[in-house]
């Protein structure tokens, strides 16, 4: 059953283009130039109930704008949009009762008060019966193991703790859809992992449809079966997540550090170096990009140089997006 459907959805912004300097500022008093920016362009989208969708793209790609249109926060410039049978920007309360949105940098919590106070407020706002409220609250509090934090002033919570609380507040009314915009931004690995497993549980146990935007590949890989890649406001990939990374994430970044000055012998290394790009090289540190399929082979060889530390990272999202775009992703646009 489709619960989100958009056809040729477009959002254009008009922004003031000021000339630089004081003269430019004075000129702006008399005559202003505006430019039009297409944040989302002619986007078609269909999402089924219970799906866990990942949305990736570089900064300014249009992901957040799309979420804002789907939640009714902003009105589209043109195109059709239907979420749970509503036109979101009508801002009907019956519609707002059925979704939740968590934006990593925007909070619903009252910083001076405790989470318990905010939850009590949301219980009344969403008209949740007392018994259901207690059950749902206890379910999430146990899932996140945050019982000790419920009566602490929100402003004293760490970023990771606060994000868990944001999720609990957002999910209190058991929404049909939850939109998550960068929920793990700024979080450490442990907190990110906890939030990922929490979201997975919500999707599997409650059947909540989740639309997740993230800059972190790990979030998308771990959670989303389907991924949509957006660039310059257009969809350039929409399909299976595994296939996306298999096909377009071709490299890994390896960082080696050494306790003593180390040279990677040119001759020995040249046998391996097909496809290797050295990004940074100092006597104590080497950073290189290697083909994904040769990771184990190259790592085995590099271990012979006894590095004191070694890290293997996924290729950055921007590079993957660029590759999709270059290799024919435009068929989706």
């Amino acid at each position: 059953m489709k619960i989100i459907e958009t056809t040729k959805l477009t959002k254009k912004y008009r922004r003031y283009k000021k000339q630089e300097g004081i003269i430019g500022s004075i000129k702006g008093l008399f005559k202003r130039e505006y430019e039009e920016k297409i944040a989302v362009g002619s986007l078609d989208l269909e999402i089924e109930k219970g799906e866990f969708i990942g949305m990736i793209g570089p900064n300014g790609a249009g992901k957040t704008t799309l979420i804002k249109m789907l939640t009714g926060i902003i009105a589209p410039s043109s195109g059709k949009i239907d979420v749970l049978g509503y036109y979101p920007n009508d801002l009907k309360n019956e519609f707002k009762q059925q979704y939740a949105v968590v934006m990593g940098q925007k909070s619903q919590l009252f910083f001076e008060l405790t989470v318990e106070d905010t939850l009590r407020l949301f219980k009344e706002i969403y008209g949740i019966p007392e018994e259901e409220y207690q059950n749902t609250k206890n379910y999430f509090v146990n899932l996140f193991d945050v019982k000790d934090l419920m009566n602490v002033q929100v402003r004293t919570l760490s970023l990771g703790e606060r994000m868990k609380m944001e999720l609990i507040v957002a999910l209190l009314h058991n929404p049909q859809i939850i939109f998550l915009d960068e929920p793990t931004i700024g979080l450490d690995a442990v907190a990110s992992k906890q939030i990922r497993s929490f979201l997975k549980a919500i999707n599997e146990e409650k059947g909540t449809t989740i639309v997740l935007t993230s800059h972190y590949m790990e979030d998308i890989k771990a959670l989303c079966k389907r991924t949509i890649v957006i660039n310059h406001g257009c969809k350039i990939y929409d399909g299976d997540t595994e296939e996306l990374f298999e096909k377009y994430q071709k490299n890994k970044k390896i960082t080696l550090t050494f306790e003593t000055a180390t040279e990677l012998p040119q001759l020995e290394f040249s046998e391996l170096d097909v496809g290797i790009v050295i990004l940074e090289e100092t006597p104590y540190k080497k950073v290189m990009m290697i083909p994904k399929e040769r990771t184990s082979e190259i790592l085995r060889n590099l271990m012979e140089f006894s590095p004191s530390d070694i890290s293997v990272e996924e290729e950055e999202i921007g590079t993957v997006v660029e590759r999709i775009y270059m290799e024919g992703g435009q068929t989706f646009a």
Partner: peptide
């Protein structure tokens, strides 16, 4: 600052 959405998403 773009945070008025805090109120727009609430069913009130």
């Amino acid at each position: 600052n773009g945070t008025f959405s805090k109120y727009m998403i609430l069913p009130v």
